[in-house]
Write a protein that binds this DNA or RNA. Structure first.
Ligand code: MN
Ligand code: MN
Ligand code: MN
Ligand code: MN
Lengths: 218, 218
DNA sequence: AATTATTTTTAGACTAATCTAAATTTTAAA
DNA sequence: TTTAAAATTTAGATTAGTCTAAAAATAATT
């Protein structure tokens, strides 16, 4: 159907579109895809010819209905494969992204539906991100960043904003995982770092960590 | 490491090399890969530069040690994925080849080793073909074609020579599967067709079927 | 409003993989 | 052992995706 390259562009445009809420600029795509603006312009034209994006010169791009459908299908595949790798093959959550980047391009509707079933129709991937269903529908969880949690209020860790291997390994080292109950015991005025209670354990984390952990209130 | 295209050429050269037992000709590769001889020549040069094949102009090609290692690694991946699709995702044996053609190109040593473990280190794929281990070693089963089986001698079905969807579906329809005990009850002189006993059932098959089913003696 | 600065697009070139058509080499036949 | 046929390689072109450098359009500053 579409080439891997086209699919990767579609996915990038989708992510940037959701992130910024407006038409996506050439330079932004170029940065995200680690390529040059001129290459992006070329690809945009191709995607536009294929009715995947709306494009007027110099005005940025947005996904068409069909582009969105395509993006969600790729994201669904990516996240289901991540669940597979963690749940069935016992990978840790910091190892799965790169492999899923490859697996997401395998073309077989039946494969992904069978995989979905095999995994028990999961709603979230190992990083807490929602998995679109066959129709592209998914429920975004009501969640807040840890740094926005009121003091002495309990929350449950449900996701990460930054899902880089670096950050995930840091969380592992500090024994912070999805499902953990977290309370802010105290904030340091000086550097906005926080003293937490994770389960029964006391943990001290920086502002940067706090602004990359998602919690849900209970 | 290598492109999908390069990997597919390597795999084709390996198969033809095993099949014919001699240096593989440009035309043979072209036919197998459904491409033109000139394209094959170009690719052979590239593979030769990369030390994957031995090549002297007009003399055909053979795989180097490294080429063989590469081929076996791809075949290992292909067959393990086929086992996964059948054993874990409940695909039937005639549906898995095309999907495995894609999955075999996923690059991750760890993935394939974990998959191998998850599947219980299988020795044969759903079509009865042997699966090379991490070192590329595999045991070829001693097997004969059904058409070579002496009359009234019992054998166990262990593989197919033709693994096309057409043939596999035919076997399903006639309830012939790997593991079944088969005896030739009688041969028809006229068309070399055979009256079999498959388990307790009587089945009549053509010469063509008989020359595409592998049995082991017991 | 005119001038910079930035962003985006175009022009031209490159690589990987493919093709057709022509040239060359090898093999088979006369 | 010439000649004809078949196989193989080369030459030149094409497409997808990329790049650099230059041109054009938009945005930001005087
Ligand atoms: Mn990708
Ligand atoms: Mn994820
Ligand atoms: Mn392949
Ligand atoms: Mn097989």
């Amino acid at each position: 159907m579409f080439s891997q390259t086209e699919e990767n562009y579609i996915k990038a445009i989708y992510a940037l579109s959701v992130q910024t809420g407006k038409a996506v600029s050439t330079n932004l795509i170029a940065e995200k895809m680690d390529t040059k603006a001129s290459s992006v312009t070329d690809m945009i034209k191709k995607l536009s010819d294929k009715k995947l994006v709306n494009y007027k010169k110099y005005q940025g791009v947005s996904l068409t209905k069909m582009g969105q459908k395509t993006a969600l299908s790729i994201i669904r595949k990516h996240r289901l494969w991540e669940v597979f790798l963690v749940d069935k093959l016992d990978f840790s959550w910091d190892e799965v992204h790169d492999i899923a980047e490859q697996l997401e391009h395998i073309q077989s509707e039946k494969l992904i539906d069978k995989l979905d079933e095999h995994l028990g129709f999961p709603s979230f991937d190992p990083h807490g991100d929602p998995i679109p269903n066959k129709e592209g529908k998914f429920k975004e969880r009501k969640k807040i960043l840890l740094c926005e949690l009121p003091i002495r209020t309990e929350g449950v860790c449900v996701g990460v904003k930054d899902s880089s291997s670096q950050f995930l390994k840091f969380l592992d080292k500090n024994k912070i995982a999805l499902g953990d109950k977290i309370t802010i015991v105290d904030r340091e005025k000086f550097d906005s770092s926080m003293h937490l209670k994770v389960g029964e354990r006391a943990v001290h984390i920086s502002q940067k960590i706090a602004s990359n952990l998602y919690l849900k209130l209970i």
